Computed example of a mutant assay.
Amino acid sequence: MKYVSLIIQSVPLIETGKFKEAVEKIDKLMKSNLSKIQLYPNRQILFFHKVIALNNCGNRIEALNLIDELIEEGLNEKIEISVLNYKFIILLGLRRYDDAEEMIDLILDKDPENHLTLLNEALFLYKIGCKEDAAEAFEDLLNETNEKLSKFKEMMFPENIWNMELTQVFERIRSPKEFLNMELTDMLMQKSAIHERLHQYKEELECLNQILELNPKHLRAWNMKGYVLAHLGKYDEALKCVNKSLELYSRDTYSLDIKGFILAHSGKPDDALKYYQKALEIDSLFEEAYYHKGEAHKELKQYTEALQCFKKVLELNPYCERAKEDIEQISGQNQDIS
C-alpha cells in the first residue's frame, strides 16, 4: 500500500494551499522509478491531482490542457466522472458558460444520478440567474447529502459514538484515517456549499467547524468560515479566519476577496479596495471580486469607478442581474456618468 500512500500525499498539500509544492511533489513522483506509480490508473490519479493544484494557483489554461490530455487517452471509470466535473469547474472559471453547460449535459448522460454533477448543475443554474430552479435543486441535494452523511456514519462508526471527538473515533476504527478524512471532508464541503446558496449560514458554520476539526489547516474551510461569520455580523472573528487562510496561501484570490468583503461590511470600504485589487491582479477573470469592488466604490460614492466594475462583471457574466440593477441605479441617479 506504500504507493497508494504516495499518490494521496498531494491531497493534504492541496487542501492546505500548498499548490506549487503539490505540483512539484507530483512531478517528482512521476519521474520516480516506482513502477506502480506509473501504472494505469495510478498515473491518471496523480495527473488529476496536478490539474487541481494548477487550477487553484491560477494556471487554468495549463490545467485545462492537462485534463484534455487525460480525457483523450481514455479515463479510468473510477475517476472519469470526477475528472469531467472538474473540467466543468475550470470552464466555469474561464467564463466559458456554453462549454460548461455542454460538459454538465455530457456527464449527466453518463451518470444521471451523480451527486457532484447535480450540485454543479445547481451552481450553474444559480450562476446564470435561474435562482428558483437552483434553490429547488439545492433543497433536494441537501436532503440527499444528509442521507449520505448518515449512511457514512452508520457504515464507518460504531453506534452511539458519533458525538465523540473525531480524533477519538478514528482510534476506534480500522480504516486508514487519511481516506476517511478525505471522504468525510468532501461530503461536508458539498453540504456547506449547499447551505451557503440557501443562505443557511448557521448550518454552514457547523459543517465548516467539523471540517476544521478533521483538518485544522484546510484552506477553503477557513476562508468560507470567514465569509459565513461576516454574514452573521461577527466581523472580528471573520477577519481572524480569513487571515488564517491567507497565512496558508497569501495569493489565494478567494481569501483576498473575502477579506475585502469583511472589511467593507464592517465599515471600512476604503481598506477593502486594496484586497479586491490584489485578487484581480492575480485573477483578472474573478467576477465576484469585480462586483464587491464595485460595491465598495459605490459605498464611497465613487460612481465612475463603481460603474466600471459592474460593467466588467457583465462582460464576464451577462446573466448577472445584480450588476445590471446597480448600473441602472447609478446611471439613474447620476445621469452625467456613463
Rank of each mutant, 00 (worst) to 15 (best):
T304M: 05
Q308V: 09
G260E: 02
L34P: 02
I327S: 01
F310R: 11
K78E: 15
I327H: 04
K177P: 05
L66M: 14
G267P: 06
E80K: 13
L280G: 11
E24S: 15
Y40E: 15
Y86C: 14
R95Y: 05
Y235T: 07
K110P: 07
K20E: 06
D27M: 05
D98I: 12
E102P: 11
D186G: 12
N59T: 00
K259Y: 05
L29G: 08
L46P: 13
V313F: 11
P318T: 01
V169N: 04
H265A: 02
D326K: 15
Y319H: 14
L108M: 10
G260Y: 01
D326F: 14
E237W: 00
I45P: 06
L66S: 05
H292C: 05
E121S: 14
L198K: 04
R43L: 13
F157D: 03
V51Q: 03
N65S: 10
L92H: 11
K278W: 04
C241M: 05
D283L: 08
E139S: 11
L198A: 08
L316R: 13
K148G: 06
Y276E: 01
N317Q: 06
L214G: 02
V11R: 12
A63F: 02
F310N: 00
D68L: 10
L246T: 02
N114W: 09
L180T: 12
K18M: 09
C207K: 06
F179M: 14
I45Q: 09
K110V: 03
K268E: 11
D68R: 13
K225P: 01
Y227A: 03
M182G: 15
K18A: 11
L34R: 15
K301H: 12
G267A: 03
K274G: 03
E73S: 11
C320N: 14
L91E: 13
T304R: 15
Q210W: 09
L6V: 02
F19S: 05
R172K: 15
K234S: 12
R174V: 11
A306M: 08
T185P: 07
M156K: 15
D68W: 05
N163A: 10
L123R: 13
C207Q: 02
A264E: 08
W162V: 04
K20Y: 03
E73H: 08
Y235W: 05
A221H: 03
E203P: 00
R96V: 02
E315F: 09
D27E: 15
P318M: 00
L184F: 10
E139R: 06
F179L: 15
L142S: 12
I79M: 05
L219M: 04
K18E: 08
K311W: 01
F47K: 12
I104M: 07
G58S: 03
W162D: 10
L94H: 06
W162T: 12
C57G: 00
E121I: 01
C57L: 11
K293Y: 00
M187N: 10
L84T: 06
E204W: 10
K18I: 03
G226R: 01
S175P: 07
L188P: 00
Q190N: 15
V313L: 07
R251Y: 09
L39W: 07
V242W: 00
K311M: 04
